[in-house]
C-alpha cells in the first residue's frame, strides 16, 4: 500500500555565508501493507512530518522513489488525493471560515462522492465522533477537540484505503484522546483501512499500533513490533524508557 525506497529530502536554509543543507530525511526505506496500523515515532525534528508530506504529494522527494496506493505522489497528486485521507493535528485542512457542514459538502463534490454513500457515511461519522452539536459552526470557532473530529471526518468521507495522520492526538484532553483512539482502532479493525500515524504519545502506540517505526535524524532507527521494540532495551521497564533509550542511542549507532 505504501512503498518508500531510499528516499531523501533536503532543504537549503539560510542565506549567504550561513547557507547550509538540512537533510530532513535520508535513505529511508519501508513498506506498509494493506490493513496495517503503523506508528511512526521520533523526537522533534526527526523527519516525521517531512515523510508524511512526501507520502501525500505535498513535498517532492530530493531522491528515491515513493508509491502510495499504486501512485507516485508527486506526479499524481490529485489522483492520489482521492485514494488517501490526510489529517494534520497541528493545522486544519478544513476551510477556516466555512461552517463544518459546508466543508463536508465541498468535500463531497471535490472527491465526487456518491450522494447516498456520502449521507450514510456522514451520518455514521457524525454518530461515532459526536459532531452533531457543531455542524453549523465555522471551523475557526471550534475547540481543538471538535476541530480534530471534524478533520478526521473530512479525511474519511471519501472512504480512502489509507489514512495518514500527523500527530492527531496533540493537545487533546484524555477523554477526546481515548475517543480518537477507539475510533481509529475500529476503523482499522472493521473497515481494514491502512493507518499510519505519527505521535509523541506513547499511549497511542501501545493502544493501537502493531508495528512501530522510529526515525531519528532523518534515518529509520527501528522497524518492528511493539515487543521487538521492548526487546531492544531489556533493562528498561516502561515503553517511555525504551524509547528514550533508542532516541539517545541511535545517533551513535550510525
Amino acid at each position: 500500500m505504501i512503498e518508500v525506497d531510499r528516499v531523501g529530502r533536503s532543504f537549503t536554509v539560510g542565506r549567504g555565508r550561513s547557507r547550509r543543507t538540512v537533510h530532513a530525511v535520508q535513505d529511508l526505506s519501508f513498506t506498509i501493507d494493506a490493513g496495517e496500523f503503523v506508528g511512526y515515532l521520533g523526537p522533534n525534528g526527526a523527519g516525521k512530518s517531512t515523510t508524511i508530506k512526501m507520502l501525500t504529494g505535498i513535498l517532492a522527494p530530493t531522491s528515491g522513489r515513493i508509491e502510495v496506493a499504486g501512485l507516485d505522489p508527486t506526479r499524481r497528486r490529485t489522483a492520489l488525493a482521492r485514494r488517501i485521507g490526510v489529517v494534520f493535528g497541528q493545522r486544519t485542512t478544513l476551510w477556516w471560515d466555512l461552517p463544518l457542514k459546508d466543508s463536508f459538502d465541498l468535500i463531497r463534490h471535490l472527491y465526487k462522492v456518491d450522494r447516498d454513500d456520502f449521507r450514510r457515511r456522514l451520518a455514521e461519522l457524525t454518530d461515532l465522533l459526536d459532531l452533531g452539536g457543531f455542524m453549523n459552526t465555522p471551523v475557526r470557532q471550534l475547540s481543538l477537540g471538535q476541530r480534530m473530529r471534524g478533520d478526521v471526518t473530512a479525511a474519511l468521507l471519501h472512504d480512502p484505503a489509507v489514512l495518514v495522520l500527523d500527530e492527531p492526538t496533540i493537545g487533546l484532553d484524555v477523554v477526546s484522546k481515548a475517543a480518537m483512539r477507539a475510533f481509529l482502532g475500529r476503523l482499522n479493525a472493521e473497515r481494514g483501512t491502512t493507518v499510519l500515524l505519527t505521535t509523541h504519545d506513547l499511549g497511542d502506540i501501545e493502544k493501537l499500533c502493531r508495528r512501530v517505526m522510529l526515525i531519528h535524524h532523518g534515518r529509520l532507527g527501528f522497524d518492528g513490533t511493539l515487543d521487538d521494540l521492548r526487546a531492544t532495551a531489556p533493562g528498561e521497564d516502561s515503553i517511555e524508557d525504551v524509547v528514550t533509550h533508542l532516541y539517545t542511542a541511535s545517533p551513535a549507532d550510525r
Binding site: G57, I58, T78, V86, R91
Partner: peptide, 22 residues
C-alpha cells in the same frame, strides 16, 4: 501560514483553490 499544505491534499487544482479563496 502553512495553509497551502491543505490545498495540496485536495483532489482539485491548487490554482483554482487559491483563486477562489474567499
Amino acid at each position: 501560514a502553512g495553509t497551502f499544505d491543505a490545498v495540496l491534499i485536495r483532489p482539485a487544482s491548487a490554482f483554482v483553490q487559491m483563486t477562489t479563496d474567499r
